[in-house]
Design a protein around this nucleic acid. Structure first.
Length: 297
DNA sequence: CTCCAGGTCGTTG
DNA sequence: CAACGACATGGA
């Protein structure tokens, strides 16, 4: 991997196990827009990023362009956000040692990385996600950001909006939330915002807890069950053993391992026994691959 | 029109 | 505990 600056842009050449489309489209985040093939803009940690990846047809190597980004900003935010310190070749080896049957999924979606997203944004986003399709979730996250986030003016004159802080959302009423089309989730969001605002729940405290303690703590929030808690643990708190089981993962795991209707907590336990600390990564390859290929119908 | 979506809650058996 | 309907909203 080779990093350098060029015309206000930051360039990374030969990044291993990195595909910006896989990373953003695999269902772990919602606050981004696809501009073109491997060309995206996204918001995270109060920043806007336009990122584009070009692949060399012959050797398969790529060049990633972080537009208008300094090395300082990359080191401060994007390196962590994109989990650049993790060796995904080692991750894949561990997963495949646990089960060779994931080879199809891992090979097909080999550019996935588990983003280290902001805890609060991840919590609210996945409360919204329940019983909704991904395009709807994205739409609602964009609406909430546009109404209550910070406005950033881009160099071309366009405006983009960061996800709001907990302090800003604290002043937003349930009716105003409903007007963002969150429906019956409005009181759930309210409850989550209050607990985080009051510092009853903080990412620092959760990160110091064991996996089970942190999950139980998250589930004290109304509207946060096992699945949403697992998503927050995996995407927003770096608990890589979290294994969210939604309708898709249930279908996929039943198709691959059980062959019959199986309860979600049995599936989750099975995954942890098989993949251990790497269960979260395994889940992401399976979810994205299985969903795209309709595994388990 | 009916069915379902990266679920969870409250209520019954 | 396990099972089941309700819950907003929008797209197929």
């Amino acid at each position: 991997m080779n990093i350098y600056s060029e015309d206000n842009n930051l360039i990374i050449e030969d990044a291993k196990d990195f595909d910006i489309a896989d990373i953003l489209e695999c269902g772990q985040c919602f606050h981004f827009t696809r501009l073109d093939e491997h060309d995206y803009e996204l918001m995270a940690y109060g920043k806007y990023l336009h990122i584009k990846q070009k692949f060399d047809e012959i050797n398969g190597k790529s060049k990633i362009i972080f537009y208008n980004t300094t090395l300082e900003e990359y080191n401060l935010i994007w390196s962590d956000f994109f989990d650049m310190e993790t060796d995904y070749e080692a991750v894949k080896n561990r997963i495949l040692n646990s089960d060779k049957r994931l080879k199809m999924a891992v090979d097909a979606k080999s550019g996935i990385r588990i983003l280290k997203q902001d805890f609060f944004e991840t919590l609210i986003s996945f409360i919204i996600s329940q019983n909704k399709q991904i395009p709807h979730i994205k739409q609602i996250v964009h609406t909430i950001s546009k109404r209550y986030g910070n406005k950033i003016e881009l160099m071309d004159g366009r405006f983009v909006y960061t996800f709001p802080t907990v302090e800003r959302l604290y002043d937003v009423s349930e009716d105003e939330l409903r007007d963002c089309k969150v429906g019956f989730r409005a009181p759930y969001i309210k409850n989550a915002v209050e607990k985080v605002y009051d510092k009853e729940i903080t990412s620092e405290k959760l990160k110091r807890m064991s996996f089970n303690e942190a999950r139980d703590e998250l589930m004290t929030i109304k509207g946060v069950g096992e699945k949403v808690a697992n998503c927050v643990l995996l995407y927003g708190l770096s608990f890589t053993n979290a294994f969210p089981v939604d309708v898709w993962m249930k279908r996929i795991m039943e198709y691959m391992y059980f062959g019959k209707d199986t309860k979600k907590d049995i599936i989750e336990k099975f995954a942890y026994e098989r993949f251990g600390e790497y269960a979260g990564y395994a889940q992401q390859y399976l979810f994205y691959y299985g969903r795209e290929n309709g595994l388990g119908k």
